[in-house]
Design a protein around this nucleic acid. Structure first.
Length: 286
DNA sequence: AATGTGGGCAACCGCAGAATC
DNA sequence: CGATTCTGCGGTTGCCCACAT
């Protein structure tokens, strides 16, 4: 089946050879190419215009950045995707030197899996309901009735039945609305803090808690934001930086024990939180 | 060493909207 | 104003390579 746009001609398909690349670059960079449909003929290529355009935009443009995505770029993709969905062209505009195709491939091959591993639906960025996650072969238990040490166990095949001790129970919260000194700059705020979990969290983990006056979010409403899976996933790698053994939760982890938390709902809740420089997270644990 | 499998990525396909005739 | 062509986009495919068996 040939291209619809150029089925009149016999056109080459498949990977581009270095010679073809050279011809196209030479042609595009030395003159105003006009319409793409005229490029192949003028440049001496047996390709269709559409293929030339794609090759130029996705691979040959000099301003393109090659190589793996940085942590910042990864975060930007996740943040913008949460808002825009699969609008790769729009997302790529936030990443100078990256193409929509590149962003899309990166999303499909890495980020999607990463979110799923954190128990998040990559389409909505919401928590995948517990029942559904159970279907994904992830089973966790969380049953403390007080602040005593407790453990989380995963039976996920990839996590090799990790067991995690938490002592004392400390929840790490990361909010997209938080101004912070981290490397990710506005509009993609991220901040990390921690606070002791109130007993009510365990008794009724699906509710939105009132932080009590002992923590830095005095009187602020916040949502139980955590991720058991993420904790488990990071327990081995981050244990040295995090003596509690509780994994750092990045802002993509909106997790409650049983409820889905809309990211924007969570963001709304955080609106009343004081600026980062007024927040003094307890030093213990992290 | 041969074969199977999965991941990453470049390229293709087909549709929709814009531009042009 | 309808038809045709062009462009841009998102979804999908298939090739290549690394790794496991």
């Amino acid at each position: 089946m040939g291209h619809r746009c150029c089925n009149k001609q016999k056109v080459r398909r498949g990977l581009w050879s270095p010679e073809e690349d050279e011809k196209l670059v030479e042609y595009i960079t030395t003159r105003d190419h006009g319409s793409w449909s005229s490029v192949p003929k003028s440049a001496g290529l047996k390709r269709c215009g559409k293929s030339c355009r794609l090759r130029w935009l996705n691979y040959l443009r000099p301003e393109l950045k090659r190589g793996s995505f940085s942590a910042l770029e990864e975060q930007v993709i996740i943040d913008v995707h949460r808002i825009l969905g699969n609008r790769w062209a729009q997302i790529s505009k936030h990443l100078p030197g990256r193409t929509d195709n590149e962003v899309k491939n990166f999303w499909n091959s890495r980020l999607k899996k990463k979110l799923m591993a954190q128990g998040l639906d990559p389409k909505t960025h919401n928590l995948i309901p517990t029942r559904q996650r159970a279907a994904n072969k992830v089973a966790c238990s969380m049953s403390p009735s007080n602040h005593e040490p407790f453990s989380i166990t995963s039976h996920d095949s990839k996590m090799k039945d990790v067991s995690l001790e938490i002592n004392p129970p400390v929840l790490t919260i990361v909010s997209p609305n938080y101004p912070s000194n981290c490397s990710i700059q506005p509009p993609f705020f991220q901040a990390t803090t921690s606070l002791p979990l109130p007993k009510s969290c365990y008794d009724n983990p699906s509710v939105i808690w009132n932080a009590n006056s002992q923590n830095s979010y005095d009187s602020s409403l916040f949502t139980c934001v955590s991720s058991i899976e993420n904790s488990l996933a990071s327990s081995s790698s981050s244990s040295s930086a995090n003596p509690t053994g509780f994994g750092l939760v990045d802002e993509n982890c909106f997790w409650t024990c049983s409820n889905i938390v809309e990211p924007f709902e969570a963001a709304k809740i955080f609106e009343s939180v004081p600026p980062q420089d007024q927040v003094k997270p307890p030093e213990q644990g992290l």
